[in-house]
Amino acid sequence: MEDNTEVEPLENKINTVSENLSDKISAPVETAIITPKQGIENIEEHHARHEGMKNWKSYVWEFVMLFFAVFLGFLAQNFLEHRLEKETGNQYVRSMIEDIISDSTKINQTLEFTKKQQLALDSLSALFDNPPYSDSTIKTMYILMLKYTMNQSNVTLTKRTVSQLKNSGGMRLISDKISADEITKYIEGAEDIESQGDYFKNIALGEIIKLNNQIFYLKYIKGVARKDIDSFIMKAPVKLANNNEDLLIEYSNLVFFTSGLLINYNNKLTNFKAGIPRTIEILKKENHIE
């Protein structure tokens, strides 16, 4: 039996499929495109919603934490500054103790000479009270004059730490009141002693030296070493340059008056020196220094 069904050509089928695919490809596809601006707006919107979730307790807590951090920083800085000032003050006290010990040595050396000087001035004054003068008396006058009126040994106390304390305002660093008072007391005593010593050197001895030039022949000892003065004077023929009675009386009185000043100066030195061990003990105790 013959099949009369018409077979569609293969070429027609291929054309039909191509047309269907072409229709599908050419159809518009809806696509959502997000621009950068829209992305940022979405993030900000999300962040705003998140911020909106904070309540007043969160803000209070943040404030407390911030305040606490600042307060702790302040305390730490204040503690550090206080510690540094205390250490600096302690160093000043240690330096002051060293200066005081040095001053004690200086005072001992000064007293060793000034006590002899005071006795020598008394003797020199007494020699002028009994004219006429023998050769040995005049020679003794020369020796005492040369050794004890042309020399002086007033003490100059150490000012290293004192100057630093005054110039830098360091006294405020001595936090311990007892120590500060003791240092102030010591400085005042030292200044009084130096003032007395300067007067003795520049005024009293200065007046004696002026009269020395009128009463003695200073050319006798020209070129003679200080250590050889005693033996040289005792061997050489010497005499006074001026025998004016009024001048010699004036000289005797001035030397006697200067001896009195020296007694007062020596007493000040002795009393000041006696207080040094107590001052050192107080400064060490109050500042925990061994």
Rank of each mutant, 00 (worst) to 15 (best):
I138H: 03
K139T: 01
T140W: 08
Y142W: 03
L144G: 03
M145G: 03
L146Y: 11
L146D: 00
L146A: 08
K147Y: 15
K147T: 04
M150Y: 10
N151H: 11
Q152T: 15
Q152Y: 12
N154S: 12
V155N: 04
T156C: 03
T156F: 12
T156H: 13
T156I: 13
L157Q: 01
L157P: 00
T158Q: 11
T158W: 01
K159Q: 09
K159D: 08
K159T: 04
T161M: 14
V162L: 09
V162R: 04
Q164M: 12
Q164I: 12
Q164L: 14
L165E: 00
N167G: 05
N167C: 01
R172E: 12
R172N: 13
R172W: 03
L173C: 06
L173G: 04
L173D: 10
L173M: 12
I174C: 07
I174F: 05
I178R: 10
S179N: 05
S179K: 01
A180M: 14
E182G: 05
E182V: 11
E182H: 11
I183F: 03
T184P: 05
K185D: 14
G189F: 05
E191W: 10
I193R: 00
I193T: 04
E194K: 01
E194Y: 01
E194P: 00
Q196V: 10
Q196E: 11
D198I: 06
Y199L: 11
K201H: 13
K201P: 02
N202Y: 08
A204Y: 07
A204I: 03
L205S: 01
L205F: 06
G206I: 07
E207K: 14
I209N: 14
K210Y: 08
L211D: 06
L211A: 05
N212L: 10
N213E: 15
N213P: 04
N213D: 15
Q214A: 09
I215N: 07
F216K: 05
F216P: 00
Y217T: 05
Y217W: 10
Y217H: 15
K219H: 14
K219S: 15
I221C: 08
K222C: 02
G223F: 03
G223Y: 02
V224M: 05
V224Q: 06
V224A: 07
R226V: 13
R226Y: 14
R226I: 14
K227R: 09
K227D: 12
D228V: 07
D228Q: 14
I229Y: 15
I229A: 04
D230M: 11
S231Y: 10
S231A: 15
I233M: 09
M234N: 12
M234D: 09
K235Q: 13
K235E: 09
K235D: 06
K235T: 06
P237N: 13
P237Q: 13
V238K: 07
K239M: 10
K239D: 09
K239I: 05
K239N: 11
L240Y: 04
L240E: 03
A241Y: 07
A241I: 02
A241V: 01
N243C: 02
N243W: 03
N243A: 04
N243E: 11
N244Y: 00
D246C: 02
D246W: 01
D246M: 10
L247W: 02
L247A: 06
L248P: 00
I249G: 04
E250M: 12
E250Y: 06
E250H: 10
N253R: 11
L254Q: 08
